[in-house]
């Protein structure tokens, strides 16, 4: 649950987005800029968080009264090396933010910190990561909670989709691209697993709201509506206007579902509305086709 330190929302003085070159970071920076917020985007070019001088360089970029959104990660962290690199990045951020203390910090974490069988997931669900990636986010959260003095908000998004997603993982992004080319979509099993997919713009808006309210605490980023991968594939194919086949495949894992109880978001940001999946898929498809020459 988030606690708002600003009882009346106000535009932050300046927001530094660490990791503004990525899918999530760029969406956040663009949304803030479109709302007239002064944004300083940092990519690996400005501050390489794995470099020896990362903390100093980061501190050098900060000004009094800054808010910081920490998005950078080597994701997904699949092995020990990636885990350790991600933790070194967090260590550099903590050192930088200790040398030059910001006014407010948001960390973009992940719902992978929760146990696989946590359903419905809520902010009070136990953190019990089942993957290296989840453990990486959980460890980073702990590092930040222990060492950052400024108010800290931990935002834990579910699965994200949008035109600029670079991972092309199993789900709406890959399905959309396959459907656009008329290629078959292959499901795991029959695509029975239900998941909660969030449009990238909603993440950006929730970050903007969290900044304006100078909120601290934990908030899951999830719509509260979970759908099966098969349903999503069918929606994507229907939207594409083409006739991709949707093929089942042999199942290797048991079917698991993940639902979210999003009540705390209704309480934290009562006026905020998530983009319904149908609309988000349409916008992602249109943005992606518009981006292609």
């Amino acid at each position: 649950m988030l606690e708002h330190l600003n009882k009346t929302a106000s535009v932050p003085q300046r927001v530094v987005v660490i990791g503004s070159g990525g899918f999530v970071g760029s969406a956040i920076a663009a949304r803030l800029a479109s709302q007239g917020v002064s944004v300083e985007g940092l990519t690996r070019k400005e501050v390489d968080l794995l470099a020896d001088d990362a903390a100093t360089r980061l501190a050098g970029r900060l000004k009094d009264g800054d808010s910081v959104v920490f998005v950078s990660a080597i994701a997904p962290a699949r092995n020990a090396a990636a885990l350790m690199q991600n933790l070194r990045m967090a260590e550099a951020v903590v050192k930088g933010l200790t040398a030059k203390a910001p006014d407010h910090v948001i960390y973009i974490s992940s719902d992978s910190v929760y146990a696989d069988d946590a359903s419905p997931v809520k902010e009070s669900s136990s953190c019990q990561p089942a993957t290296m990636h989840g453990m990486m986010h959980a460890a980073r959260e702990l590092v930040l909670k222990n060492e950052i003095k400024a108010p800290l908000a931990l935002l834990r998004p579910s699965l994200l989709y949008g035109a600029r997603d670079p991972h092309n993982g199993y789900g709406p992004n890959r399905f959309r691209r396959q459907a656009a080319k008329g290629e078959p979509i292959t499901l795991f099993g029959n695509g029975e697993e239900q998941r909660d997919h969030v449009f990238i713009d909603d993440v950006a808006e929730l970050v903007a709201l969290t900044l304006r309210h100078r909120s601290r605490g934990i908030l899951n980023i999830a719509t509260g509506v979970s759908m099966s991968f098969r349903t999503i594939a069918e929606k994507v194919v229907a939207l594409s206007g083409k006739s991709s086949d949707i093929d089942p495949s042999a199942r290797h894992n048991a079917v698991t579902h993940r639902h979210f109880d999003v009540t705390s978001c209704l309480k934290a940001f009562p006026r905020f509305r998530y983009t319904p999946l149908d609309e988000g898929l349409k916008r992602a498809a249109s943005e992606e086709s518009g981006a292609r020459p």
Binding site: K122, D261, T263, L266, K267, P270, R273
Partner: peptide
Amino acid sequence: TNSKHRRDWALRMVHREVFGRKP
């Protein structure tokens, strides 16, 4: 945990059935 969850039933319902359609 269940008690806290059910206490907010009406809040979830009013968001889903009312505010989504008429802000």
